[in-house]
């Protein structure tokens, strides 16, 4: 693969060729970063990464474009679809509306962090069992919301599940199956049970 070269428009080379100014220790101490790129430490699924970021970069773009963590999806980039749902310190957030620099020192968990090695999380298994997905693009966000919803205790009945899952659009409209998957995990006390083939 050829590296990027100067384009035919005759522009200056890549900005990456220059060394942007780094925040000084004093600025850091005052909590100031940017506008130039700065090194940020991000903990994602238990691994600490040093990433060079401009402060305007969203957590979603930092994950997808810098760390190649592409489980979190970009459906709207404006907080309307939930495809980018991840956890920050265990709470669900929309990664497209969260600045990456604001996550320094926090635990970021994405769908890649749900399974325990090769063993799927019960909610992942329940999604497979109940065909709670079709194209799969909303699925990482649905899963992060669904597992969080269990912890939040918003799973008493279908109406409550539906309400608290309504921040995650599924254009394939797998909604009834998503509710069924959540019920399955709830009713099995966190253990997924293999349902028979329908």
């Amino acid at each position: 693969m050829t590296p990027p070269q100067e384009g035919r428009t005759g522009l200056a080379g890549l900005a990456g060729h220059t060394v942007p100014r780094q925040a000084t220790a004093a600025e850091r101490d005052r909590g100031e970063i940017g506008p130039e790129p700065a090194d940020v430490l991000l903990t994602v699924n238990g691994t600490v990464h040093r990433v060079r970021l401009e402060p305007r970069v969203s957590l979603l773009d930092a994950l997808r474009e810098r760390l190649d963590v592409t489980g979190p999806k970009k459906g709207c980039n404006q907080g309307a679809c939930g495809a980018c749902t991840v956890w920050v310190d265990g709470h669900r957030v929309l990664a497209c509306l969260t600045l990456a620099v604001a996550c320094e020192g926090r635990e970021v968990t994405t769908v890649e962090g749900l399974a325990d090695g090769d063993e799927l999380h019960p909610m992942q298994e329940a999604f497979v069992d109940n065909d709670a997905l079709q194209c799969g693009y909303c699925t990482p966000g649905q899963l992060m919301s669904a597992v969080a919803l269990m912890k939040e205790g918003h799973h008493r009945d279908d109406a409550e599940i539906a309400e608290w899952m309504s921040g995650n659009i599924c254009r394939c409209a797998a909604y009834p199956n998503i509710r069924r998957a959540i019920r399955q995990v709830r009713d099995s006390g966190g253990r997924a049970e293999q349902e028979g083939e329908s």
Partner: peptide, 18 residues
């Protein structure tokens, strides 16, 4: 047969690349 989707695992683990 109602076998589960062939690509379900990739989709629930975030491994599926679009």
């Amino acid at each position: 047969r109602g076998v589960p989707r062939a690509d379900a695992h990739a989709k629930v683990t975030g491994a599926a690349r679009y």
